[in-house]
């Protein structure tokens, strides 16, 4: 999922200066998981903007309807076409992907060109939970995990070195940049040692092929994302889970 946090209200108000009538749109995907675009967040944002004298129309998206999945979120946009036409700006409570997919759809499919403003800052692909998350993959397009004992140095090493560690490792094996972060290369060394693969540690890894991450990346799949995904989600409801494992907070 794409981690995200709310932007400071002052920044959002700055973007909305001179724009009186505002649509506040939520997102039923990642932004709902991180409480940055769920219905509660939409209501809170609407209340804050109303306090600032704005005329607000709320457009929350139900759970699983993601702003970036335009086939579905587009239904909500079409349903609220009149409001979108008559308002000065659309504030989207999603990651930057959602904001831009909605902007493009409104511009090109609906013929409505409005100021579209982000309410959140996206922080990358993360895993973990329920409260603590960590970015471990940057979707570089050329996975190197097979060479580095399953830990991505491009993401987990502060410098993204393919051949570390650097000379800046702290006394407690933390990163020179941030004492809260582990040195990824010490972790890689320790995993390789456990795996009996230290010969891999001293071999030279070639420079990463950044051409695979040439932006913006375009991507196409044969089977469209559609109702079968919803079907799979229904199937999940019939799965019997065991006792809930105790998770670290």
């Amino acid at each position: 999922m794409i981690a995200q946090e709310k932007k400071p209200m002052e920044e959002i108000l700055g973007y909305l200066e001179g724009k009186q009538k505002v649509v506040v749109m939520g997102c039923g995907g990642c932004a709902t998981f991180y409480h940055t675009g769920d219905t509660k967040a939409v209501n809170e944002m609407a209340a804050n903007l109303t306090k600032e004298g704005k005329d607000v129309f709320k457009m929350p998206l139900p759970f699983s309807i993601q702003a970036c999945d335009i086939e579905k979120s587009g239904v909500w946009l079409e349903k609220n076409r009149k409001e979108l036409e008559n308002r000065d700006a659309l504030l989207v409570l999603s990651c930057g992907d959602g904001v831009q997919v909605v902007t493009e759809y409104m511009d090109e499919k609906m013929g409505i060109t409005k100021s579209v403003i982000p309410a959140n800052d996206a922080l990358g692909l993360v895993g973990g939970g329920p409260k603590k998350f960590k970015e471990t993959c940057q979707s570089c397009g050329m996975c190197e995990l097979g060479k580095t004992a399953g830990i991505c140095p491009l993401t987990s090493c502060g410098k993204g070195l393919m051949n570390g560690p650097c000379g800046g490792v702290r006394v407690d094996n933390k990163c020179e940049i941030d004492e809260k972060k582990d040195c990824a290369w010490v972790k890689i060394y320790e995993r390789m040692e456990k795996l009996g693969e230290l010969d891999k540690f001293i071999s030279i890894r070639s420079p990463h092929e950044w051409s695979k991450a040439a932006r913006p990346r375009l991507f196409e799949i044969e089977e469209p994302v559609g109702m079968d995904v919803i079907g799979a989600m229904k199937g999940m409801l019939t799965v019997k889970f065991g006792p809930k494992p105790k998770l670290d907070e």
């Binding site: 051949n163 000379g167 060394y189």
Partner: peptide, 23 residues
Amino acid sequence: GAAAPGAAHLKAEVGKVKRKINA
């Protein structure tokens, strides 16, 4: 190249130095 004798994790540091020698 550089080497850091006082590195917190000496074995990893020495592994890196050997890699530089290989290079």
